[in-house]
Simulated assay, not measured.
Amino acid sequence: MKIAKLNRVGALIIDLIFISLAYTLIFNFIPEEWLTTTQQYGWVLQTGTLLYYGTFLVYFLLFDFTNSGDSPGKELLKLQTRDMSGQKLERKRSIKRTLLKLVSMIICPVSALLYLFGEGEFSLHDAYFNTSVFPQGKPVKNHLFN
């Protein structure tokens, strides 16, 4: 596996740790009677699961609005999200990319396998929006062909 994939997986793990910490703090303030299984639209959903995905969504949307889609995990590992020409993403495109990222996390086994064992360095949301994650300060051309 290429070092770029390992860095990107590392950034996601860092972000998931932050999300889990935020989720734990939020979850501790929810009244116990709310933590029951609810039936909605024919699916049985656990409140905690919905809250976790909600925390995930808010976390990444926050950085779409404030940091061009670069999360703390990416910042710590000196990565940046850009389009294939090396430009920062427009806010609307970054938000749509995050929504697709959430969907790909829900179908995680499939998207993770495609990313980890696929030929390129693209995730589903990158392939759809023609974006990628690059080392900070490194030209896009060098990243794609090294």
Rank of each mutant, 00 (worst) to 15 (best):
I3Q: 15
A4Y: 05
N7I: 05
R8P: 14
R8N: 12
V9Q: 02
G10I: 00
A11V: 06
L12D: 06
I13M: 10
I13Q: 06
I14E: 01
I14H: 02
D15K: 07
D15R: 05
L16F: 14
L16E: 13
L16D: 12
L16H: 08
S20Y: 05
L21C: 06
L21H: 01
Y23D: 02
L25A: 02
L25C: 02
N28Y: 13
F29L: 11
F29R: 07
I30A: 11
P31L: 10
E32I: 10
E32W: 05
W34E: 08
L35A: 11
L35Y: 00
T36K: 12
T36M: 05
T38M: 06
T38V: 10
Q40Y: 08
G42I: 05
G42M: 12
W43R: 14
V44D: 09
Q46E: 14
T47C: 03
T49H: 06
L50I: 11
L50Y: 04
Y53A: 10
T55I: 07
L57P: 08
V58L: 13
Y59R: 12
Y59V: 08
Y59P: 13
Y59H: 10
F60M: 04
L62E: 00
L62Y: 11
L62Q: 01
F63N: 08
F63Y: 15
F63M: 08
F63I: 04
F65V: 09
T66S: 11
T66P: 02
N67G: 01
G69D: 04
S71W: 07
K74M: 10
K74H: 12
E75H: 09
L77P: 08
K78P: 01
K78A: 11
T81S: 13
R82D: 02
R82T: 10
R82V: 14
M84D: 02
S85Q: 15
S85T: 09
G86K: 08
K88W: 02
L89S: 04
L89G: 03
E90N: 09
K92F: 09
K92Y: 06
K92N: 09
K92I: 04
R93V: 13
I95A: 10
K96Y: 13
K96N: 11
K96M: 14
R97A: 06
L99S: 05
K101Q: 13
V103P: 02
S104K: 06
M105S: 13
I107V: 11
I107E: 00
P109S: 07
S111Y: 00
L113P: 01
L113H: 03
L114T: 00
Y115Q: 03
F117I: 00
E119F: 00
G120W: 00
E121Y: 01
S123N: 01
S123A: 12
S123G: 04
L124M: 06
A127L: 11
A127T: 02
F129Y: 15
F129W: 12
N130M: 08
T131C: 10
S132V: 00
P135V: 02
Q136G: 02
G137P: 06
G137V: 03
K138T: 15
V140R: 03
K141Q: 14
N142W: 06
N142L: 12
H143P: 00
F145Q: 13
F145M: 11
